[in-house]
Amino acid sequence: MRLVGAVFVLWAAATLTFFGLRLIPGDPAQAILGGPGSQASAEALAQVRAEYGLDQPIGVQYVAQLGRLATGDLGTSYSLKSPVADIIGSQIGGTLLLAALALLVAWVIALGLAVWSTRGGRVAAAVGSTLEIVAAAVPHFWLATVLVLIFSTALRWFPAVSTAGPEGLVLPVLTLALPLAGFLGQVMRESVLNALEAPFTLSARARGESETGVRWRHVLRHGALPGVALSGWAFGWLISGAVVVETVFARPGLGRTLLNAVQLRDVPLVVGVVLVVALGYVLMTLATDAATRLVDPRARFS
């Protein structure tokens, strides 16, 4: 049942993209022949239309594309002229690394802030809460520019554009992680607060467990729960954010590929990226469900 649902999601995403792109002004044959503004001859356009089947009715093209996708063939990019699978293969690593690190950092910040601000009294709670709300309200493109200005142009601690080494990842990861940490922090802190008042915490204290022990063993676990469940959503959020961050920091990746492909009307490439992202979302959802069971003892008995 799960599998059927996943396949349905992928099919619908591909369909939506396929027809969505056809509504956009711009001729796919022209996209193939050197992009917008090209002065391709009538023969060349006709040749390309025949070669790519663009002279067929849209329904036939759709079925043909679906047939190829079903056999795992993502097709050839109009603009880059190489197989879509190869392009995605070469770009996905950077984006996944960026997203994974951002998620991890956001997690650490959010959890740390949640635990600290719930034990530090009123002031800490107010500071924590303010930080979370402000962080969640910061547009990441603005944050990116500010971070570059401070840490790259003025202080020169980190490079402004991506490098082969790890130092080039610092600013992009922070840009994505800080607003996300704001979101996660709000949920986690609330959850930690609830856990601190929960009966199981009371009984743990009654059993004589140390405060630290209680926090680490029970409260933190409870606080982490919403974070785990939110990770599926965070994945989609990070992919959208990657479009902006990869553009600002000149990082190769799926986000930038997607933006370029839409602007160049590169239908196969856009469909390919959408499918991969949708697949990632489906997998992430399955993974968070599994992780929830792992973290939440109650879920294990279901």
Partner: peptide, 9 residues
């Protein structure tokens, strides 16, 4: 802006 920042750094 990033391009110029990269040159400056």
């Amino acid at each position: 802006a990033t391009r110029f920042a990269a040159l400056q750094s």
